[in-house]
Amino acid sequence: MAKLLILSIVPKLIFGFIVILVIIRLLGKRNLSQLTPGDIIYFMVFGGILEESLYDNKVKFWHVLLGLIIWGLIIYLFELIISKSRIARKWFRGDTDILISNGEISQKCLKHNKLEIDQILSIAREKNIFDLSDIKNMYIESDGGFTIEPYTYQYPLIENAYTIYPLIENETINKQNLKKINKDETWLYKQLAREEVYKKKDVFYADWSEYRGMYILKLFYK
């Protein structure tokens, strides 16, 4: 009985493995970082079809074959539609979002992607950027990755090249850091006014360093 069960499982597993490899090749994927949410759904359904068929003797090999072929055709047609239609591609794959543009950060993009300042700082450090004022533009790609376009400097800045004091984070003033640099809130609001910012809620992040002075990352609501 066990031998018969093994003989029925092995062909299904081998065939399922081959079909998934073929689909990955047809989708043009080279590594896992290129997989989209749609791709994950494809393979979850593949896994479900195989799982339901492995230990059920009533499900014949040709049933599995038919199910995987039909699902493969659905994927192929879906991908074909997406490749031909920009509207469909935007709806199902997403589009590139501009998170930071010339010193301003998109409130809409922040809210949609549920991002906070700590995450943005971490992403910048992963790209070897340790000062947000170095960032000219930051993009969120359709696959969820981040692309940073820095300003061009003659001498690249490195971590700990100078001390940066965060002064505003999440609409909260860091009074402790203001004391460290011997400044007060009146001075801070004057700095904001110089950049035509008059409300604290319009500032996503602000910091100060002796090396380059004040940096303000303003929110825009488009």
Results as ranks from 00 to 15, higher is better:
60 K>C: 00
75 I>M: 12
94 G>H: 00
64 V>P: 01
72 G>S: 11
94 G>V: 01
63 H>F: 05
93 R>M: 06
92 F>I: 15
60 K>M: 05
85 S>L: 01
82 I>G: 00
56 D>T: 14
93 R>N: 13
58 K>P: 01
59 V>P: 01
59 V>M: 03
62 W>E: 08
80 L>Q: 14
80 L>W: 13
62 W>C: 05
79 E>Q: 00
65 L>I: 07
60 K>T: 02
81 I>H: 02
87 I>M: 12
92 F>T: 15
55 Y>D: 12
72 G>W: 01
61 F>M: 02
65 L>A: 02
93 R>P: 04
88 A>T: 11
92 F>M: 15
67 G>R: 14
55 Y>R: 05
72 G>M: 04
61 F>Q: 05
79 E>N: 11
69 I>C: 06
55 Y>A: 10
64 V>Q: 03
67 G>I: 12
94 G>Y: 03
74 I>H: 06
60 K>R: 11
95 D>R: 12
79 E>R: 06
76 Y>Q: 04
78 F>V: 15
77 L>P: 09
81 I>T: 12
78 F>N: 15
66 L>I: 01
95 D>P: 02
67 G>E: 13
62 W>K: 01
87 I>V: 15
64 V>E: 09
92 F>H: 10
75 I>A: 09
76 Y>P: 04
82 I>H: 09
69 I>D: 03
77 L>M: 14
58 K>Q: 10
89 R>T: 08
66 L>S: 00
93 R>C: 08
86 R>D: 14
85 S>K: 06
90 K>W: 13
91 W>D: 01
71 W>F: 14
95 D>E: 13
59 V>C: 03
62 W>L: 14
56 D>K: 13
68 L>K: 08
69 I>L: 15
70 I>K: 05
73 L>W: 03
86 R>Y: 06
70 I>W: 00
81 I>Q: 09
85 S>F: 07
89 R>E: 12
56 D>R: 07
58 K>M: 04
89 R>N: 13
90 K>P: 04
90 K>G: 03
89 R>C: 13
58 K>V: 14
61 F>P: 00
63 H>R: 12
89 R>W: 02
90 K>T: 04
88 A>F: 11
61 F>D: 08
79 E>A: 09
56 D>A: 11
58 K>W: 00
74 I>L: 12
67 G>P: 10
61 F>V: 01
67 G>K: 13
84 K>I: 11
85 S>V: 09
64 V>T: 07
83 S>I: 08
73 L>T: 14
85 S>Y: 10
84 K>T: 10
66 L>Y: 15
63 H>T: 00
65 L>M: 02
95 D>K: 00
